[in-house]
Amino acid sequence: MNIAHYIDFTLLKPSLTEREIIEFCKTAKTSMFNAVCINSAFVPLVKQLLEGSTTKTCCTIGFPLGTTATASKVYEAIQAVKDGADEIEMVINLGFLKSQNHVSVLKDIVDVKLAIANTPLKVIIEISELNKNEVIKACEICMDAQVDYIKTSSGFSKSGATFTDVKIIKKTVRDMIKICASGGIDDYDTALKYIDAGADRISTSTTIENIDKSRQIRNTKIYTKYIETLQNTKTTEKV
């Protein structure tokens, strides 16, 4: 499987430099990753660096806490699209959700969705902060808001995705919304398992190769052992 088309290459650490962005974008273009995900200040630079490639520019808003005012999220999203963002990621307001203020959660998402029109919207639900019922409710709200993706984690909370979480989301949204698994996914085998569990995208800050190196290592060991066995057999026959 060509894993590159599933990868959202994330560059979200606060100390990120322009030099690092240039190198990351070069890697993303060479590897043909699906998208580069960055904070709004860097959208113009990333859009310029990715010009001529199939790799999209994805921008986070209300990041990483999701507790900024809806009007601020709307303004940031509109500006990001103007600057060239191909996709928008917003963080859900966890306080509203845990307060069971579901109307405010829905309005927060819908206002951003309407503001960016046809630009795809991903909603980060920060799954490590939610129990199963809250995960399901967050998914139901996202379906009502007609978002394009549910993303499991921002990378700034207690932990990232789990296979169980992705399966719960998939069972809830079925094929109505796509899923982006995020957090602690940094090798081919793990990424493949998340895709098998229902993820449509993998968000990671690690360069995941298209080839399965762990399987290559196992195959190499088997091959080496086979050669050793042949050599030992030949030595025995000579004796």
Rank of each mutant, 00 (worst) to 15 (best):
A4F: 04
Y6C: 15
K13W: 05
P14M: 15
L16T: 15
I21N: 06
I22Y: 08
E23P: 04
F24N: 03
K26G: 15
T27L: 13
K29F: 03
S40G: 11
S40D: 12
S53E: 10
T54S: 15
I61N: 00
P64D: 09
K73C: 11
Y75V: 15
G84T: 13
I88G: 01
M90S: 02
I92Y: 02
F96E: 10
L97R: 02
S99P: 04
K107V: 12
I109F: 04
V112M: 04
A117I: 02
T119N: 08
V123H: 02
V123G: 00
I125P: 00
I125L: 11
I127E: 01
E129G: 05
K132A: 14
E134L: 04
V135P: 00
I136Y: 04
A138V: 07
C139F: 03
E140N: 10
F156C: 10
F163V: 15
D165G: 05
V166H: 01
T172F: 07
D175P: 03
A181T: 03
S182N: 05
G184T: 11
A191K: 03
A197S: 15
I202V: 10
N210R: 06
I217T: 11
R218F: 06
E228V: 03
T229W: 05
T229C: 08
N232G: 06
N232M: 10
K234S: 09
T236R: 09
